[in-house]
Simulated assay, not measured.
Amino acid sequence: MTSDARNPRACIRGTGRALPAAQENAAPSDAPPADGAPSEASAGRERRRAAAGETTSDLAARAARAALDAAGLGPRDLGMIILATSSGDAPMPATAVYVQQKLGAELIPSFDLSASLTGFLYGLSVANQFVTAGTLRHVLVIGADLLSRRVDPRDRAAAALFGDGAGAVVVGPAAGDGRGILSVSLRADGKKADVLQVPGGGSAEPLTQERLADRRHALRVNHAELRCAVEERLGGQALAALVAAGLTPADLDWVIPHHADAHLAGLLAEHLGCPRQRVLGALDGGNAAGASAGSVAMALDEGLRDGRIQPGQRVLLCALGGGLTWGSAVVRV
Rank of each mutant, 00 (worst) to 15 (best):
R47G: 02
H217Y: 10
P275T: 13
R220N: 09
G72I: 06
R49M: 08
A64N: 07
P275E: 14
V141P: 01
S183D: 14
A282K: 05
L267M: 14
T2V: 13
P173S: 14
G323S: 12
S328Q: 06
I256F: 10
Q277W: 04
D251I: 00
D214T: 08
V296E: 02
A175N: 12
A265W: 04
L272S: 02
A265K: 06
A84W: 07
Q101F: 08
S185K: 09
G235K: 11
P8S: 10
M80N: 06
P8L: 07
D4G: 02
A64R: 04
S29L: 10
G167W: 03
G74F: 07
E225T: 07
F120A: 07
G16M: 08
A299Y: 00
M1R: 05
Y122L: 08
V255G: 11
Q197D: 11
L68M: 15
A168N: 09
R17S: 08
I142F: 08
P173M: 02
F130K: 03
A105Y: 04
E225C: 02
D189V: 02
A329P: 10
D253I: 01
S295R: 01
M92Y: 15
S116D: 05
A213D: 13
L247N: 04
L59G: 04
A27H: 01
A144I: 04
A250T: 13
L234W: 01
D164P: 13
A66R: 10
A96F: 03
W254I: 01
A168C: 10
H138L: 03
L264W: 07
G273R: 09
A224H: 13
D306P: 00
A51D: 15
G180Y: 09
N25L: 12
R137G: 15
T325F: 03
V184W: 00
G180E: 12
S328R: 05
L207S: 09
L234N: 00
R220Y: 08
E46Y: 06
M92V: 15
K192E: 12
R45I: 05
A204P: 00
G88H: 14
V151E: 01
A71G: 05
A51E: 15
L121I: 15
G74V: 13
L182S: 11
E225G: 03
T208K: 06
F111A: 11
K192A: 14
D112M: 06
L140C: 03
T55D: 02
R17H: 12
D284W: 04
H263D: 14
G321A: 09
V198L: 10
R154N: 12
A265Q: 08
T132Q: 09
A66H: 03
V141Y: 02
S116Q: 08
G72M: 12
Q129L: 08
S86A: 14
L113C: 00
A265P: 02
A61Q: 02
V330F: 08
A204R: 15
